[in-house]
Write a protein that binds this DNA or RNA. Structure first.
Length: 477
RNA sequence: CGGGAUGUAGCCUAGUGGCUAAGGCGCCUGCUUUGGGAGCAGGAGACCGGAGGUUCGAAUCCUCUCAUCCCGACCA
């Protein structure tokens, strides 16, 4: 099939859709705003899941599963929470052929049902901390959807923890943010900014929301993960108290944190090119695709040559041998590039003659002939190099497109022009933040850790008041 | 919820009132090929998004409707 991918320069959003459909990551399904995650896309998510799950377990968390359906009244118990979520909730009103006494909300997130259970499970400080994660689907009725980035139903993990003190809960929030940062940078090859959200951008029901924020190739920001310090808001709403070691009674301190299948969208938009998907090796379901190049008269020999290599690599790497004899090598090259496989190995009669194979990097297209005997040992370092280059390239791109701006007109023209991340002194005024959003569509993506020192002595670019933060403004997904 | 676009075979498209709806890609069979998206031959696959109307006759004209995508508004 002659897949034509719209070049990024022509239309970034068409390009994105072409990659998702062409690389067979997902497909549209019959209900508006929903999608099928196809095997090639789901395999990426499975790798993300298994790595993250390991990281959660290492930090002491356990998995559980809470139900999809939540009594509508639960949502209403936390005022800010219900206000934030009510408009995007899907509600079940009928079941078993009858109208229900109380409508059931399909979870948009699970804080309420989980805290209703935590009330039963927590009595004493000895029950704390309670560190539970769940892998689940959630539904948020979105008016505008985009494959992987914003769909009505999506998959995610949500961690919900309960602690005896504010400090401990705060530490947990920051610990999980750090887990997300490591995952994004070390596995997704995606550099991220970490910090806190402004009140306007935080999670409905949180005291503070922390986030990892990444830049996509169109210079827009994508929130890739969030970790919330919930204070005692949910404990109070659901009356979850515990006896302290001193015999007193206190409300429990809470956190929640999550990443979703949106990460797959982030991965695509961060690294892919006009030839197709580019996957960082550590998350690529297939690391190596071997493409033998044969003619009828030498088919047996070449396939044996390729197959031997395949057998050698299999114990060490996720490798496939494309021995289909119906498609031409050129077709296969394009196809594996579209699928985003980090390394392709070409081996034909000429290589056999020279006792070599050709390694081809997906990220640069570079062709590297190596002696066949050395090939198995060359793969791992090359994968690491690709992983590192993808990260370096993404970081360089973000830095090139991040500006220090302390003048409001400059900020406006920056956002009207090429755009990117603008590091701007900000007074902390919500009105100033809203004004920028109104006039430029850019929002404060994050207040990076340690930004306050950098703001010392500066004046807010919007109001002229003394600046309290260096805020990162950007248009976002 | 506003603006735009599109709906004809799995995909892309032609067909603007007249015979049995056409072509390309893909798919199936066979042969031939294979170092950057191969070739030949044969074959399967469509109630033209849906409903109603106009007409001797509708994929085509009219009305209504449904769906999806894109842009905007909205949105952890």
């Amino acid at each position: 099939m002659a897949e034509r991918i719209t070049p990024r320069s022509e239309s970034y959003s068409d390009w994105y859709v072409d990659i998702v459909l062409g690389a067979e990551l997902a497909d549209y399904s019959p209900v508006k705003g929903t999608m099928v995650i196809r095997p090639r896309g789901y395999a990426v998510w499975e790798r993300m899941q298994s790595i993250l799950d390991g990281m959660f377990k290492e930090t002491g968390h356990v998995n559980a599963y809470f139900p999809l359906l939540i009594p509508e009244s639960f949502l209403k118990k936390e005022a800010e929470h219900v206000e934030g979520f009510a408009p995007e909730c899907a509600v079940v009103t009928h079941g078993g052929g009858e109208e229900l006494d109380e409508p059931l909300v399909i979870r948009p997130t699970s804080e309420t049902i989980i805290w209703s259970m935590y009330k039963k499970w927590i009595q004493s400080y000895r029950d704390l901390p309670l560190l539970i994660n769940q892998w689940a689907n959630v539904v948020r009725w979105e008016k505008r959807t985009r494959l992987f980035l914003r769909t009505t139903e999506f998959l995610w993990q949500e961690g919900h923890t309960a602690h005896a003190s504010a400090e401990e809960a705060r530490d947990e929030t920051l610990q999980m943010l750090e887990v997300y940062r490591r995952f994004a940078e070390e596995y997704m090859a995606l550099p991220v900014l970490t910090g806190v959200k402004t009140p306007a951008e935080k999670f409905a029901g949180a005291v503070d929301t922390y986030a990892i924020e990444a830049m996509m190739q169109d210079k827009k920001a994508l929130q890739a993960g969030t970790s919330h310090f919930l204070g005692q808001n949910f404990a109070k709403a659901f009356d979850v108290t515990f006896q302290t070691s001193e015999g007193g009674l206190d409300h429990v301190w809470a956190t929640s944190w999550g990443v979703s299948t949106r990460l797959v969208g982030a991965l695509i938009m961060a690294h892919s090119d006009d030839k197709g998907l580019v996957l960082p090796p550590r998350l690529a379901p297939t690391e190596v695709a071997i493409v033998p190049i044969f003619k009828n008269q030498n088919k047996t020999e070449v396939l044996a040559y390729a197959s031997k290599l395949h057998q050698q690599l299999k114990p060490m790497h996720r490798v496939v041998l494309d021995d289909d004899d119906n498609n031409s090598p050129g077709w296969k090259f394009s196809q594996w590039e579209l699928y985003g496989v980090p390394i392709r190995i070409e081996c034909g009669p000429k290589d056999m003659q020279a006792e070599q194979v050709v390694l081809v990097r997906r990220d640069t297209g570079e062709k590297i002939p190596v002696p066949v005997a050395e090939a198995p040992a060359r793969i791992a370092p090359l994968l690491e190099d690709i992983q590192r280059s993808l990260y370096d390239r993404a970081l360089a791109f973000r830095e090139e497109n991040t500006r220090d701006i302390d003048d409001y007109q400059q900020l406006v023209s920056f956002m009207e022009g090429d755009g990117g991340f603008a590091r701007v002194p900000w007074s902390g005024s919500p009105e100033a933040e809203a004004k920028v959003k109104e006039e430029t569509k850019a929002t404060i993506r994050v207040l990076p850790f340690g930004n306050e020192e950098a703001a010392a002595g500066k004046r807010c670019a919007i109001t002229g008041e003394p600046a309290r933060h260096m805020a990162i403004f950007a248009k976002s997904y």
